[in-house]
Design a protein around this nucleic acid. Structure first.
Lengths: 165, 165
DNA sequence: TTACATCGTTAGCGCGACTAACGCAACAAG
DNA sequence: CTTGTTGCGTTAGTCGCGCTAACGATGTAA
């Protein structure tokens, strides 16, 4: 019989007693934080007529150079099947060029255009602001460490996943 | 004033300003990490015939006592509309009891059963293991700090969100 | 009474992660 | 040359989560 809090009528959260295994679970915290992060990101990118995937594709093109759709897919983590639509949208806007690879007729070679680079630069600014807003409550040193810890976690788990198949 | 690269027209960046900005963005890292976390969590909970929402509902019931569906909804962050199905599934399994509130005929009072408490205890063990697996690459001190930083971030943003409407 | 707020419930949208399956092209082995 | 395997682009569809809209029934306040 847990007879501590009756709360039969109006519990109405005012002060929480911190028994807290709901609030300190990494999985839950990550979900909540990512929900917020995604919301902000989508909001910001929507004002630039873009989505997260657009940014990932463009950035990977600029950093690692042109490549086939499958290559882009591996670089960004976007699935091959979803890449199609992303590149359609980017090509429609003239941010990217899709040309058949003469050396391998199965492939398309995707290249970022000048307009694409301009757009990417704009998106970068948006995301920089968002990054700051996201980590606002942390001190500069803490932000770095947070990013560092997260990077190590992600690296570890993606390595792990890549070793499985 | 950021006087590094002006980039009024052509944002050159050969190797001056091109770290992996794809890999160090908090939003992207969070997405990837949460994807992995969610995958593991769902996998683990599936083996106990449960989902994340089931755990959240049960844990909140045990920690804060019985309450109406709307109360549970506010405590867990699960939407009222989704709570229905969650409680249906929990009630089907006999983990929870749903009874009309005699004091307010709009409400249902949700109570966790003995079996529900047992099940919750089991889920807790599963999630503890997962928590450890998730943070495996970090040292104990780092894990604490990671959770701490995350908690502060989440708190800040949920406060922010609660002040908006 | 009128007006508004809250509750449980149903239905549906959008998005991100993921699978299945197709047809085509490349390539290596027999 | 055929045959099997592998990789490619594409289409379609699944599933879960977060979220909105609307309903009828009930409670509360003007």
């Amino acid at each position: 019989m847990t007879s501590r809090a009756e709360a039969a009528d109006m519990p109405d959260d005012g002060e929480i007693k911190t028994p807290d295994r709901l609030r300190r679970r990494a999985s839950r915290l990550l979900s909540q934080m990512t929900a917020q992060s995604d919301r902000l990101t989508n909001e910001g990118l929507a004002q630039a007529d873009a989505r997260k995937w657009h940014y990932a594709a463009l950035a990977s093109l600029q950093e690692y150079g042109p490549g086939s759709q499958a290559t882009l897919s591996r670089r960004t983590g976007i699935y091959r099947s979803d890449m199609v639509a992303v590149l359609n949208e980017l090509a429609e806007r003239g941010l990217v060029e899709r040309a058949p690879d003469p050396g391998d007729r199965r492939r398309n070679v995707i290249t970022i255009t000048a307009q694409g680079r301009r757009h990417l630069h704009c998106l970068d600014k948006v995301l920089d602001d968002l990054h700051e807003e996201l980590l606002a409550p942390l001190l500069p040193a803490e932000r770095d460490q947070f990013v560092d810890l997260l990077t190590r976690l992600v690296d570890h788990h993606t390595q792990q996943a890549h070793r499985a198949p």
